[in-house]
Every structure is written in structure tokens, then in C-alpha cells.
Design a protein around this nucleic acid. Structure first.
Lengths: 237, 237
DNA sequence: GATTCCTTTATGTCTGGACATAATAATTAT
DNA sequence: ATAATTATTATGTCCAGACATAAAGGAATC
């Protein structure tokens, strides 16, 4: 059944967002301009203040607007657009390309935390850690080399875990809660060992991601992930 | 004046978020578990459904929860935590380290879009583009080399712009609206020219960011940003 | 057995009103 | 003049209730 009178459609917060974005784009509201307050906008758009508020709040979260109490809302001159990177599991990343995923454990050892790791994770001298080296394949070609360190004190059960078939990343994600993550990307030259594992020429550039994870001030794990040739980390927003 | 009876504090949506997170961490609600519905939670926490809704909505946005109508809300087993990268202006990035920022224009030319760019931006054959090469310094050491292409059809005023003192990034941000961005990171070997500009050894690894910008299906600009030795892109969440 | 239709349920959103809070402006006391 | 106090204002949050909507399950029909 079709509506005879389509009229009286309600204004949604998404409508408001669109309208506001349009006005910013067409410079009705230029950068650094103070825009009308929520009450006025609500009247103009024919909706409640809560609806306007949600629209504006989200635009502020996205970095488009800058809001302050009493002062009002202004168009951000330098939209420090925050790029959202979805960091998937290696398995998902590989399978998303249609390739077959395979995992292999290269080495596994329990040892005293080396000094550089102690410094990085703020561990005490006698801390014991589990050190794993793993390889992740896409269609049998090396895709990612994982150099993983787990703080045994924070995750006692890790000593009993079997990492021969399930990667440490997947195991940790399902077993260990965490509150804080530091992630950093860089470009590095492959050393001999890494070149070997990833089938690269020595000193070829490697895209590296390093991730450190805490559970409330308590370091859980550090991982250095080195990606094979031609890897790109991409996002759209 | 101090309150004699502190009692009857209201439950805020932030309180709810904290409580829910705690329960997920201590495995009261294990991964993949279905958690109570909003009405029940509102009753339990002593607040309205809207308050619970906001808390849950935000946790879902953060990738912690997975919500579906009728089905309910469940704890995400593989928290595909989305890392938010704040991509700052080069100037801000340099000045944040306490270093002095300096900008230099290396070259500027108007030309027909080369084939690789036409393919990338989906431009027609006779499209004209402005091609800029710029260098950004931190304390007089090269920090970033910018290889910038601007679609003149989308930004006619760019031909008159003077890029000798202000970088194209800052100019574009303040002058040209955009709706979509594609950003990608990779590791590459420096070619001779790039090594020259960034004071690197030939074929040394370079961290590269490529950004393409559109205004509603209309390509605006493409930039390849190459960073100097030791650059790291870091985020915490 | 398969398809269509209806019911149920949990989330998604809007309303209009209320009070809280940060930040500025105006006023008063020092 | 300067400092302390008091409005004023726009955003931030909460509430109770209402209707919309997606999705699942069951019932009636083909």
C-alpha cells in the first residue's frame, strides 16, 4: 500500500547531520564560524533539542565541530579528522582476500625478560616471559611474522597453552581481558632472519606494527608484527 | 558547603559503561554471551532505558558489543578494536615535539594528468592537474616529503594559490571541502630522488602515507607523504 | 514441505521537559 | 582598580513515555 499523503516526515538526527554538513561544505557556515545554538536549530529543523544535540555531538566526535559550554558550537577550522583503522585478526585479514590462511609456530621458550623488554613494559628484574615466534601464511606465501612476548605474571595460564595450531593473538583475545593498547606503525629494513622468514631480500623494507597491551597498568603482552612485501594498511572514511 | 547525605547519586551512562566493561573483564559476561536486555539492565542499574541505551550504543561503536534488533546484545568474541588515528597537520606534528617547523616548496607545475593518476582518481583524459613537491622540516632536518596532485577542475582557485609559504595541505584544508578520504600506509624503498630530499641512503626504508580525497565522487587531491628516518605513527586507546 | 502472514521481542529513535555544569558577562564588595 | 560574587547562557545529561523497525518464531495457507 502506498501512502497517499507522504507528508509530515519526522526530522531525524541523521537528517540534521546531513544538513549541517551541507552548510559547512557550501560555506554557509565557514570554518571558525559560530553556528546557532541547539534551541534555534531545533526550531528551524522542526525537531526537538535532543535530536539536534545528538547530531551535533556526533559531528563533534568526528572532529567536524568544536563545542564548548556557554561559548557555543563552532566549525572546526582544521578538521583533525581522526582516521579509524579497523585492526582485524590476521586470519580474517587473509581470508578476506580470498586466500587460504595457515598458521605455523616457529619457536617457543620461557625466559627471563630481556632488558629492552623490561624497560618497554616496566617489568621487574626477575620477570618471566613467554617468547613466541610465529608465521602466518596466505596461500602458503608468508604474510606476517609475529614476534610475541607474554608477561607470565599477568597471564599465568599461558604456560600451559598450546600454540601449535592456534595463534597467540587469537588465544589472547579470547582468554585475556585488556584495557589499554598502544599501537605504532613504522618502516624498517629486514634483518637476515626476518628476510628468511618472509622470503625477502636482506634489508628490504618491511612494514612493522608494534602492539603493547595492558590490563590496568599491568603489562600483558608485546608483539612486533612484520608484514611481507607489498603490504598496505588501508582505511576509508 | 558539604553534603550531609551524599546519597541518591544518579547512575550516569558512563557508570553503566564502566560496570558493563567490568563484567566483561571479570568474565561475568564471557565472550559471545548474550547479556540482559535494556529494560532489565535499566531496572538493575536504577536508571532509565535511554541511559542504558546510550552506554550500550557507545560500547557497540567501540567494537566491544554486538547488537541486533530482536536478537539482543552480545559480548563480541573478537573485539575488532578499531584504532583511532589522529592524523594531524605536519606543522602540528612537528611543533608537538618541540621542534621548529619549516616549509619549503620544491617544485610546482601544471600539466595533463599522467595515466597512473588518471586511473587512480578516475579522471578523464584531458584533465589538468597541479603537481607540487614540498619539503617539511623539523629543526632544519627533513621530516616529510610531500608529493601532491590537485585536480584543477575540482579546485579551480588552486592555480592562483601561492604555495611558497603555506603548505598545500593547510591551504586545501581551509579552502576545499571534502566528503571522503582514503588513507593507506606502507613501507617502501627510497628511490634516488627521495633519498636525496630526505637525506637517506638509497633504498633505505621509508614510511609512506597516501591520501586520496573526494568531494562526492569528484576526486579532489592525491598526496604521497614520505617520512624521514625513524618515523613512527603511534596511537593509544 | 514451502510460502505467506502475524505476533513477539529487543533495539533504534523522537519528544518535551527537567536539572546539572562550564564558561562568560555583569555586578558588587574590597 | 581588583577581587569576589552572582547572573546568564549554551551545552551535557537524565527521564518517562511513545512509536518505529528489524529479526526471529510460529501459525495458517498453498
Amino acid at each position: 500500500m502506498n501512502k497517499a499523503t507522504p507528508a509530515a516526515e519526522k526530522t531525524t538526527y541523521q537528517n540534521v547531520k546531513q544538513s549541517v554538513l551541507r552548510r559547512i561544505r557550501d560555506r554557509t557556515w565557514a570554518p571558525d564560524t559560530l553556528i546557532p545554538n541547539e534551541v534555534d536549530l531545533a526550531r528551524e529543523f522542526g525537531c526537538s533539542r535532543s535530536t539536534v544535540n545528538r547530531a551535533m555531538r556526533e559531528l563533534a566526535e568526528e572532529g567536524i565541530l568544536d563545542r564548548k559550554r556557554k561559548t557555543g558550537t563552532r566549525v572546526n577550522a582544521t578538521p583533525v579528522r581522526n582516521a579509524k583503522f579497523v585492526i582485524p585478526l590476521v586470519r580474517d585479514e587473509v581470508e578476506a582476500t580470498g586466500a587460504a590462511y595457515r598458521y605455523a609456530l616457529v619457536s617457543r621458550e620461557v625466559l627471563q625478560a630481556p632488558p629492552w623488554l623490561r624497560a618497554r613494559l616496566n617489568l621487574c628484574e626477575e620477570s618471566r616471559v613467554l617468547h613466541l615466534n610465529c608465521l602466518h601464511f596466505a596461500n602458503n606465501a608468508p604474510f606476517q611474522f609475529e614476534d610475541r612476548w607474554v608477561n607470565i605474571m599477568a597471564v599465568p595460564t599461558v604456560e600451559q597453552a598450546d600454540f601449535s595450531t592456534l595463534g597467540p593473538n587469537e588465544w589472547l583475545l579470547s582468554q585475556v581481558p585488556f584495557t589499554d593498547v598502544e599501537l605504532s606503525f613504522s618502516a624498517n629494513a629486514a634483518d637476515a632472519r626476518l628476510a628468511d622468514f618472509l622470503a625477502l631480500n636482506p634489508s628490504e623494507p618491511v612494514f612493522t606494527a608494534e602492539r603493547t597491551t595492558w590490563l590496568k597498568d599491568r603489562p600483558v603482552t608485546f608483539a612486533r608484527l612484520s608484514f611481507g612485501r607489498g603490504y598496505r594498511m588501508t582505511t576509508r572514511y
